[in-house]
Amino acid sequence: MSQAIEHLSGEWTIHHAGELRAPLLDLVNAGCRVFDVSAINEIDSAGLQLLVSARNALMLQGHELALVEAPSCVQEVLACYGVDANLHPLAKEVRA
């Protein structure tokens, strides 16, 4: 896919969720589907929810969202919620 990869960075937490939404929406509306999240240094449920919400918006347009280069903090959250890099639920075994 010759899609441009957009970089997301910073703290994706409840404290910043309000300011993160608008720029993300712009990216989604511009047709971005692949996001490099390597520069995200903190993420919580609010951050994940934003990404899931972006995915839902893309899915309405018939596209998939993909996260690439997920750093450990993002991977941990994805694993906790049992979703894959497309933010689809994954009935994958989570072991504590």
Partner: peptide, 20 residues
């Protein structure tokens, strides 16, 4: 946790999302 599945279907698309 043998298995965990997120319930994500309640999340609205970005344009309708209250991020908090």
């Amino acid at each position: 946790l043998v298995q965990l599945q997120a319930l994500l279907d309640g999340v609205p698309p970005l344009q309708d999302l209250d991020p908090e």
